[in-house]
Design a binder for these strands. Sequence first.
DNA 1: TGCTATCTTTACGTTTACGTAAACTAGATG
DNA 2: CATCTAGTTTACGTAAACGTAAAGATAGCA
Lengths: 154, 154
Amino acid sequence: MTELDHSGPSVLPEPVTGFAGSAAGRDIFTIRDLTKEFAVSARTLRFYEEKGLLDPARRGEQRLYSRRDRARLAYVIAGKTVGFSLEEVREMLDLYDLGDGQVTQLKVALTKFGQRIERLERQKADIDRIVAELTRASDAMKEKLAAREHADQA
Amino acid sequence: MTELDHSGPSVLPEPVTGFAGSAAGRDIFTIRDLTKEFAVSARTLRFYEEKGLLDPARRGEQRLYSRRDRARLAYVIAGKTVGFSLEEVREMLDLYDLGDGQVTQLKVALTKFGQRIERLERQKADIDRIVAELTRASDAMKEKLAAREHADQA
DNA sequence: TGCTATCTTTACGTTTACGTAAACTAGATG
DNA sequence: CATCTAGTTTACGTAAACGTAAAGATAGCA
């Protein structure tokens, strides 16, 4: 199994602030919980923590992940699947933790958000073009197939 | 300049078959032409060739890129920006060069195309979710800003 | 002819995002 | 109590996607 799965349900179950909190499941998750839910390795979760993307609590040595950690993890995975580096994802997540900063910082954050959104919109356009291309090629192949099968029957 | 630009015009100027051919510009491009047009290094183009993504002709030692090469390069870049690895992009491009293969191969190709398209659609959904998140957070910040400035005037 | 600019191959270096192995600890279970 | 089972830290390994430096070939030009 060398290729990642990515067939699971799409990510972002709730806002990354994790303040909504009144949803269904638990409020605390073990490392195994998250590896199973998101199909990532424990190593990956520790690595994300090392990089400042997650910051789980501890019970002795064990890591305990909050809803907020879980939401952030979902955000990291979503960001990755659409082409952001971990560093870029961290920058975006940091913007959330800025909520009560200085006015200047808020303005900077707003600008960055805007840039991210624009970039994502461009990516969507790229995806649309590639899908169109693939669909075109796909249709062409289908016609060839049909032609062959027709010939086989004659 | 550690981060890539990505502000240029979106890619895919023409179908990757490169058979359309009747567009505007030239029919032959030097390595410099392509580095400038697509904002990639010469090293990158040679690397892509080494990996079987491009296959330019030669005039002596110099590489000469055709419209088809150029179209394929555009496809590679588009594929990369939406999260495909070079290997995956190569697989997709190979499907195009299969046009006259066996019926079985055509069917395999069709299946793969379908999977690619599905994956891209999922990615689009992810992007939409992230954009929605970013927009929400952005709006929240704007409100905070407005509140502060209002307070400053009072 | 000598210089410069551009291209080439070869090869080692670098960053990102983890994998994997070793050695240790703590709690559960027969 | 011994032995799993999960978890932990530390550290080296690796694949992808190039960057970068070295050294040589070629073409244009003053």
